[in-house]
Simulated scan of single mutants.
Amino acid sequence: MKDILRIETVSEHDAFYHKENLHPLVSIMDFDGRVPEVYASKMNFGFYIVYLKEVICGDMKYGRHTYDYQDRTLVFVAAGQVINVDINTDYKPQGYALLFHPDLIRGTSLGRHIDDYTFFSYQSNEALHLSEKERKIVLDCFDKISYELEHGVDKHSKKLIVDNIELFLNYCVRFYDRQFITRNDLNSDILVQFEKLLNDYYQSDKPQTIGLPSVNYCALQFHLSTNYFGDLIRKETGKTALEYIQLKMIALAKQKILDNKKTINEIAYELGFKYPAHFTRAFKKSTGVTPIEYRSQN
């Protein structure tokens, strides 16, 4: 087993699995027990991949955690990201994959908005679990793309292929919204822990030693990717995680400002600001008044 394997193109990936390549920039892979040339403990791709795993087939670490694939699971891998694989060499993979190169979508609506599909930066333990009906919709999208690939390329092919990829990704947005709702109890618990995390943070010396709490720092405490954590908080509160952190900081700042024993500069440093001017700017942006004006008014 190689330590790391880099596959730059869709064509290389098809060849890796002994599959005929129908288009250099996009492919639908039906694994159907296909065994690759060689397994690698780490894999890095130059294109986007969406895996639809149908059976338990091994462990993949995408980020910091291992996820045991179950049936009807979608995992998204962005171009350039590394996945760590721990798979028995005698297993026969089952399932499907959509592969598309950034060059395919460059200059298209999907290319301009690909970063909006934040689940490409989720970890494997944040995978999308599908119902049977959702699985059929996914396979229908894959079938339409396969149809275009199998019937030759003409002037309509690229638009139809890209449009179907975008349609598929938009369905995934809906499915993830459903998953956030069905896991509401778990998400609410994380929100409560998030509030506690911020309280504990500001009761420690971390603001002075680390600075303002970042979204990435908070996500790490819950062993979540930054994007998944941010999407979860937005679904639960209607605010981004950064906005939530800033509102917490402003509420604490208001309490401190009313303590006339401390200067505005001291309060800024206590909250984690390196420069008091940055604190004044952030406070005024949120409240409409400067910290000094807020103190005099109250």
Rank of each mutant, 00 (worst) to 15 (best):
L22D: 02
K284A: 07
S131K: 15
L25F: 12
K158F: 08
T280K: 15
K262D: 04
T89Y: 14
V35L: 10
M43R: 12
M43N: 09
M249Q: 14
Y217K: 09
E293D: 15
K285G: 03
T280R: 15
Y176P: 04
S296W: 06
Q70A: 08
F142Y: 15
L74K: 08
L271E: 03
E132R: 12
T287P: 00
A241W: 06
E126V: 13
E54H: 08
I292C: 06
L271I: 02
L74N: 04
G111S: 01
E126L: 14
Q94H: 09
L242T: 00
V77C: 05
D116P: 03
G58D: 04
P207R: 02
D71M: 08
D71K: 15
D185N: 08
K92M: 03
F180Q: 06
Y217D: 13
M29Q: 10
L98V: 04
Y275L: 04
T226H: 13
D32R: 14
C172H: 01
I165H: 04
T280E: 12
K261Y: 10
N44W: 03
K274W: 09
Y176H: 08
Y62E: 04
Y244A: 04
L252N: 00
E20S: 14
R183Y: 10
M29N: 09
I56D: 12
D68L: 12
E126P: 03
Y117L: 05
Y275S: 05
Y117D: 03
G95Y: 01
R72G: 00
F180I: 03
